[in-house]
Protein backbone atom coordinates (compact mmCIF):
# COMPACT_ATOMS: atom_id res chain seq x y z
CA UNK A 1 0.00 0.00 0.00
CA UNK A 2 1.42 3.42 -0.86
CA UNK A 3 2.06 6.30 1.41
CA UNK A 4 0.73 9.66 0.32
CA UNK A 5 2.80 12.80 0.46
CA UNK A 6 1.29 16.25 -0.03
CA UNK A 7 3.97 18.87 -0.64
CA UNK A 8 3.18 22.55 -0.25
CA UNK A 9 -0.38 22.22 -1.53
CA UNK A 10 -2.30 25.41 -2.21
CA UNK A 11 -5.56 26.16 -3.95
CA UNK A 12 -8.57 28.41 -3.48
CA UNK A 13 -9.44 26.74 -0.17
CA UNK A 14 -6.42 24.83 1.12
CA UNK A 15 -3.22 26.64 2.10
CA UNK A 16 0.32 25.44 2.76
CA UNK A 17 -0.64 21.82 3.24
CA UNK A 18 2.32 19.58 4.00
CA UNK A 19 1.22 16.13 4.96
CA UNK A 20 2.66 12.66 4.98
CA UNK A 21 0.12 9.86 5.21
CA UNK A 22 1.77 6.59 6.10
CA UNK A 23 1.35 3.25 4.44
CA UNK A 24 -1.87 1.50 5.64
CA UNK A 25 -2.59 4.39 8.00
CA UNK A 26 -6.11 5.50 8.93
CA UNK A 27 -5.85 9.29 8.91
CA UNK A 28 -8.85 11.38 9.87
CA UNK A 29 -9.21 14.93 8.60
CA UNK A 30 -11.26 16.61 11.29
CA UNK A 31 -12.73 20.08 11.35
CA UNK A 32 -15.86 22.14 10.91
CA UNK A 33 -17.83 22.52 7.71
CA UNK A 34 -16.03 24.69 5.17
CA UNK A 35 -12.52 24.17 6.52
CA UNK A 36 -11.28 22.42 3.37
CA UNK A 37 -11.49 18.75 4.36
CA UNK A 38 -13.35 17.61 1.24
CA UNK A 39 -11.19 19.83 -0.97
CA UNK A 40 -8.13 18.10 0.42
CA UNK A 41 -9.63 14.70 -0.47
CA UNK A 42 -10.42 16.01 -3.96
CA UNK A 43 -6.81 17.13 -4.31
CA UNK A 44 -5.57 13.63 -3.45
CA UNK A 45 -8.06 12.14 -5.93
CA UNK A 46 -7.14 14.69 -8.62
CA UNK A 47 -10.66 16.09 -8.88
CA UNK A 48 -9.74 19.75 -8.33
CA UNK A 49 -6.90 21.98 -9.46
CA UNK A 50 -4.09 22.81 -7.09
CA UNK A 51 -0.52 24.01 -6.83
CA UNK A 52 2.16 21.89 -5.20
CA UNK A 53 2.72 18.21 -5.51
CA UNK A 54 0.95 14.97 -4.57
CA UNK A 55 3.12 11.86 -4.43
CA UNK A 56 2.03 8.25 -4.12
CA UNK A 57 4.96 6.18 -2.90
CA UNK A 58 7.28 8.98 -3.94
CA UNK A 59 5.91 9.19 -7.48
CA UNK A 60 4.34 12.54 -8.41
CA UNK A 61 0.79 11.95 -9.66
CA UNK A 62 -0.10 15.58 -10.39
CA UNK A 63 -0.23 14.97 -14.14
CA UNK A 64 -2.23 11.74 -13.75
CA UNK A 65 -5.89 11.92 -14.77
CA UNK A 66 -8.30 10.87 -12.04
CA UNK A 67 -8.81 7.36 -13.36
CA UNK A 68 -5.07 6.66 -13.32
CA UNK A 69 -4.67 7.60 -9.66
CA UNK A 70 -6.77 4.56 -8.74
CA UNK A 71 -8.11 5.79 -5.44
CA UNK A 72 -11.33 4.48 -3.93
CA UNK A 73 -13.52 7.48 -3.14
CA UNK A 74 -16.67 7.40 -1.07
CA UNK A 75 -18.42 10.71 -1.66
CA UNK A 76 -20.37 12.49 1.04
CA UNK A 77 -23.50 12.44 -1.12
CA UNK A 78 -22.72 8.79 -1.98
CA UNK A 79 -23.66 9.36 -5.67
CA UNK A 80 -24.76 5.82 -6.37
CA UNK A 81 -25.49 5.62 -10.07
CA UNK A 82 -29.30 5.68 -10.19
CA UNK A 83 -29.58 3.69 -13.44
CA UNK A 84 -27.53 0.75 -12.14
CA UNK A 85 -28.71 -1.74 -9.57
CA UNK A 86 -26.68 -2.54 -6.46
CA UNK A 87 -24.73 -5.35 -8.13
CA UNK A 88 -23.78 -3.29 -11.20
CA UNK A 89 -22.99 -0.25 -9.06
CA UNK A 90 -20.47 -2.29 -7.09
CA UNK A 91 -19.12 -3.92 -10.26
CA UNK A 92 -18.77 -0.57 -12.07
CA UNK A 93 -15.16 0.18 -11.11
CA UNK A 94 -14.04 -3.34 -11.94
CA UNK A 95 -15.77 -3.38 -15.33
CA UNK A 96 -14.47 0.01 -16.50
CA UNK A 97 -10.99 -1.14 -15.56
CA UNK A 98 -11.45 -4.09 -17.89
CA UNK A 99 -11.35 -6.87 -15.31
CA UNK A 100 -12.52 -10.29 -16.57
CA UNK A 101 -16.19 -10.97 -15.90
CA UNK A 102 -15.44 -14.02 -13.73
CA UNK A 103 -13.24 -11.89 -11.48
CA UNK A 104 -15.89 -9.16 -11.35
CA UNK A 105 -18.57 -11.63 -10.26
CA UNK A 106 -16.32 -13.14 -7.63
CA UNK A 107 -15.34 -9.80 -6.13
CA UNK A 108 -18.89 -8.40 -6.19
CA UNK A 109 -20.28 -11.49 -4.48
CA UNK A 110 -17.54 -11.27 -1.88
CA UNK A 111 -18.36 -7.63 -1.14
CA UNK A 112 -22.12 -8.21 -1.10
CA UNK A 113 -21.52 -10.85 1.54
CA UNK A 114 -18.96 -8.80 3.47
CA UNK A 115 -21.31 -5.80 3.69
CA UNK A 116 -24.37 -7.91 4.41
CA UNK A 117 -26.25 -6.61 1.38
CA UNK A 118 -26.57 -9.76 -0.70
CA UNK A 119 -30.37 -9.51 -0.55
CA UNK A 120 -30.21 -6.01 -2.09
CA UNK A 121 -28.20 -7.02 -5.17
CA UNK A 122 -31.03 -6.51 -7.65
CA UNK A 123 -32.42 -3.30 -6.18
CA UNK A 124 -31.93 0.19 -7.59
CA UNK A 125 -30.66 3.06 -5.39
CA UNK A 126 -34.10 4.69 -5.25
CA UNK A 127 -35.35 1.63 -3.36
CA UNK A 128 -32.62 1.66 -0.67
CA UNK A 129 -32.62 3.22 2.79
CA UNK A 130 -29.87 5.63 3.90
CA UNK A 131 -27.87 2.94 5.68
CA UNK A 132 -28.19 0.52 2.78
CA UNK A 133 -27.03 3.18 0.33
CA UNK A 134 -24.06 3.89 2.56
CA UNK A 135 -23.03 0.23 2.59
CA UNK A 136 -23.44 -0.08 -1.18
CA UNK A 137 -21.36 3.06 -1.71
CA UNK A 138 -18.67 1.69 0.59
CA UNK A 139 -18.67 -1.62 -1.28
CA UNK A 140 -18.44 0.18 -4.63
CA UNK A 141 -15.52 2.33 -3.47
CA UNK A 142 -13.75 -0.76 -2.12
CA UNK A 143 -14.43 -3.05 -5.09
CA UNK A 144 -11.51 -2.15 -7.40
CA UNK A 145 -9.09 -2.99 -4.55
CA UNK A 146 -7.67 0.52 -4.59
CA UNK A 147 -4.58 1.05 -2.52
CA UNK A 148 -5.91 4.33 -1.21
CA UNK A 149 -9.39 4.90 0.21
CA UNK A 150 -10.86 8.36 0.57
CA UNK A 151 -14.01 8.53 2.68
CA UNK A 152 -15.89 11.82 2.83
CA UNK A 153 -18.19 11.98 5.87
CA UNK A 154 -19.59 8.54 5.12
CA UNK A 155 -21.81 8.43 8.22
CA UNK A 156 -23.07 11.96 7.99
CA UNK A 157 -26.74 11.51 7.24
CA UNK A 158 -27.37 8.35 9.24
CA UNK A 159 -29.21 7.78 12.49
CA UNK A 160 -27.11 7.06 15.58
CA UNK A 161 -27.66 3.33 15.55
CA UNK A 162 -26.78 2.81 11.87
CA UNK A 163 -23.84 5.21 12.12
CA UNK A 164 -22.45 3.30 15.10
CA UNK A 165 -22.84 -0.01 13.29
CA UNK A 166 -21.19 1.27 10.11
CA UNK A 167 -18.35 2.86 12.07
CA UNK A 168 -17.50 -0.57 13.39
CA UNK A 169 -17.81 -1.95 9.86
CA UNK A 170 -15.43 0.65 8.47
CA UNK A 171 -12.95 -0.12 11.24
CA UNK A 172 -13.21 -3.84 10.53
CA UNK A 173 -12.91 -3.26 6.79
CA UNK A 174 -9.79 -1.15 7.20
CA UNK A 175 -8.14 -3.85 9.29
CA UNK A 176 -9.13 -6.54 6.81
CA UNK A 177 -8.15 -4.69 3.62
CA UNK A 178 -5.21 -2.77 5.11
CA UNK A 179 -5.51 0.14 2.70
CA UNK A 180 -4.19 3.63 3.31
CA UNK A 181 -7.34 5.50 4.31
CA UNK A 182 -8.13 9.20 4.56
CA UNK A 183 -11.39 9.81 6.37
CA UNK A 184 -13.13 13.17 6.54
CA UNK A 185 -15.48 14.03 9.38
CA UNK A 186 -16.62 16.89 11.57
CA UNK A 187 -17.74 14.41 14.23
CA UNK A 188 -15.54 14.19 17.30
CA UNK A 189 -16.56 10.65 18.16
CA UNK A 190 -15.87 9.30 14.67
CA UNK A 191 -12.55 11.07 14.44
CA UNK A 192 -11.16 9.93 17.74
CA UNK A 193 -12.41 6.35 17.69
CA UNK A 194 -11.37 5.46 14.14
CA UNK A 195 -8.12 7.32 13.58
CA UNK A 196 -4.54 6.18 13.78
CA UNK A 197 -3.80 9.88 13.49
CA UNK A 198 -6.03 12.96 13.40
CA UNK A 199 -5.26 16.04 11.33
CA UNK A 200 -7.27 19.05 12.52
CA UNK A 201 -8.17 21.54 9.79
CA UNK A 202 -9.11 25.14 10.27
CA UNK A 203 -9.51 27.76 7.51
CA UNK A 204 -7.89 25.48 4.94
CA UNK A 205 -4.80 24.78 7.04
CA UNK A 206 -3.72 21.81 9.11
CA UNK A 207 -3.44 23.27 12.60
CA UNK A 208 -2.64 20.07 14.53
CA UNK A 209 -1.72 16.54 13.60
CA UNK A 210 -1.05 13.58 15.83
CA UNK A 211 -2.47 10.43 17.33
CA UNK A 212 -5.88 10.88 19.02
CA UNK A 213 -4.41 10.63 22.52
CA UNK A 214 -1.90 13.42 21.86
CA UNK A 215 -4.55 15.68 20.34
CA UNK A 216 -6.89 15.01 23.24
CA UNK A 217 -4.18 15.90 25.75
CA UNK A 218 -4.05 19.36 24.22
CA UNK A 219 -7.75 19.89 24.30
CA UNK A 220 -9.64 21.33 27.22
CA UNK A 221 -11.87 18.33 27.81
CA UNK A 222 -14.12 20.23 30.21
CA UNK A 223 -14.95 22.69 27.47
CA UNK A 224 -15.88 19.85 25.18
CA UNK A 225 -18.15 18.27 27.75
CA UNK A 226 -19.86 21.53 28.64
CA UNK A 227 -20.58 22.21 25.02
CA UNK A 228 -22.12 18.80 24.54
CA UNK A 229 -19.62 18.15 21.85
CA UNK A 230 -19.92 14.38 22.01
CA UNK A 231 -23.44 14.72 20.74
CA UNK A 232 -22.12 15.45 17.28
CA UNK A 233 -25.01 13.77 15.52
CA UNK A 234 -27.55 16.35 16.66
CA UNK A 235 -26.23 18.75 14.07
CA UNK A 236 -24.08 21.85 14.18
CA UNK A 237 -26.50 23.90 16.23
CA UNK A 238 -26.02 21.69 19.25
CA UNK A 239 -22.38 20.85 18.86
CA UNK A 240 -19.49 22.79 20.28
CA UNK A 241 -18.62 26.15 18.85
CA UNK A 242 -14.93 25.69 19.41
CA UNK A 243 -12.35 23.31 20.75
CA UNK A 244 -10.21 25.10 23.30
CA UNK A 245 -6.65 24.22 24.17
CA UNK A 246 -5.51 23.88 27.75
CA UNK A 247 -3.30 26.93 27.36
CA UNK A 248 -6.42 28.95 26.50
CA UNK A 249 -5.90 28.97 22.72
CA UNK A 250 -8.48 27.76 20.24
CA UNK A 251 -7.82 24.63 18.24
CA UNK A 252 -10.70 24.93 15.82
CA UNK A 253 -14.19 26.28 15.48
CA UNK A 254 -17.06 23.92 14.96
CA UNK A 255 -20.70 24.55 14.29
CA UNK A 256 -22.23 27.66 12.81
CA UNK A 257 -24.35 29.18 15.54
CA UNK A 258 -22.19 29.82 18.50
Amino acid sequence: MPNIRLKNINNFICHDIDLNIRDKEFLVLWGATGTGKTTLLNIIAGLVEYEGSVLFDGIPVDKFPVYKRKVGYLFQSLVLFPHLNVRTNIAYGLRVQGKPESEVELRVNELLKLMGIKHLAGRFPKDLSGGEKQRVALARATAPSSEIMLLDEPLNSLDLHTAGYLRTEIHRLHRKLSVTTVYVTHCFEEAFTLADRVAVLNNGRIVRIGCPEDILKEINCRAIAEDGFYDCRQGNKNSAAQIKLKDGGVLCHLGGDR
Binding site: L47, Y67, Y92, G93
Partner: peptide, 9 residues
Protein backbone atom coordinates in the same frame (compact mmCIF):
# COMPACT_ATOMS: atom_id res chain seq x y z
CA UNK B 1 -16.53 12.52 -10.54
CA UNK B 2 -17.51 9.21 -8.95
CA UNK B 3 -17.15 7.34 -12.25
CA UNK B 4 -13.75 8.91 -12.87
CA UNK B 5 -12.56 8.08 -9.37
CA UNK B 6 -13.59 4.46 -9.97
CA UNK B 7 -11.23 4.32 -12.94
CA UNK B 8 -13.52 5.19 -15.86
CA UNK B 9 -11.93 6.88 -18.86
Amino acid sequence: KAARSLGAS
